Amino acid sequence: MGKVSGLTEAIARLVHDGDVVALEGFTHLIPVAAGQEIIRQGRRGLTLVRMTPDIVYDQMIGAGCARKLVFSWGGNPGVGSLHRFRDAVECGWPGALEIEEHSHAGMANRYVAGASGVPFAVLRGYVGTDLATVTDTIKPIVCPFTGEQLTAVPALNPDVTVIHAQRADRAGNVQLWGLLGVQKEAVLAARRSLVTVEEIVDTLEPVPGAIVLPAWAVTAVAEVPGGAHPSYAQGYSERDNAYYAAWDAISRDRDTFDNWLHENVFASAVGNNA
């Protein structure tokens, strides 16, 4: 079949009810279009994983896709709270949301452990914090060589990881550059992976500082120009700051959010070209 797919078909094939799903991207290259396609397809019972859940997870939570969030920070960057996330945690609307909170370093190391095929990661960063008192997946461990008190966190192996990148070739090799997060580790840790890209090209030309995810690590690629909006894709688009500011008012009220969802997500579809 090859790696190249339409977005609708790729989500239908790769994301299932009850899956552990990671949509990664750090300020840049956030796979928003893919998240909205998950909403359109009515997925339920998902465990959403992300180091920095922002508005795409707010939308998915508000749409009823999630039963749990595993994260290290959540908010509308530069603006304030995620109101659909808060409503789910505080009031159980549209359903109760379980949360599992870690530090950035803990989440990153969990992905690294998952990508490395080991059961857990060890780090110093939790010592002296109280996160272990509220998160069951943070456990003390003693170094067998020095006796030092450290902390273990279990590996993360999502059922599916979704990321956005600048481009891919027709064989499914993916090239991304600019401000990156844990996209590489999240893809390598996952059982299945989908990469939406700005464009599919015949040849990946070298770019300073770029990384390439080889086709063997990627399950599917979908060409979705603008698929990171309102975040940005270096070399292709700029961050839509007005969108983030407008989201605060949209997400505060349930009816306003529902109207927005039906007008801007359910009434439209993008990225279905194969």
Results as ranks from 00 to 15, higher is better:
M1P: 07
T8R: 14
D17C: 13
V21F: 07
F26T: 13
Q36A: 07
I38K: 04
G42W: 13
G45K: 01
L46F: 03
V49N: 06
T52R: 12
P53F: 02
G62Y: 00
R67I: 06
K68F: 01
S72K: 08
V79Q: 02
V89I: 14
V89E: 02
V89L: 12
W93D: 01
L97Y: 06
E98F: 07
E100G: 09
E100Y: 08
G106R: 10
G106K: 04
N109F: 11
V112W: 03
S116R: 10
S116Y: 08
V118I: 14
P119W: 04
V127K: 15
T129H: 01
D130G: 04
T133N: 15
V134H: 13
I138R: 00
I138W: 00
C143T: 06
T146G: 06
E148A: 15
P154G: 02
P154C: 02
A155P: 02
G172V: 03
G172T: 02
N173D: 11
L176N: 08
L180W: 05
V182A: 12
L188W: 03
L188H: 10
L188K: 08
A189Q: 05
A190E: 08
S193N: 00
L194F: 05
T196D: 08
V197H: 07
E198V: 08
V212A: 05
T219E: 13
V224T: 15
G226W: 04
Y232E: 09
R239Q: 12
R239Y: 10
Y243H: 15
Y243K: 13
Y244E: 10
I250T: 08
I250D: 00
D253P: 02
T256Y: 00
F257Y: 14
D258P: 06
H262A: 07
E263P: 05
A267I: 08
A269Q: 05
G271Q: 12
G271T: 11
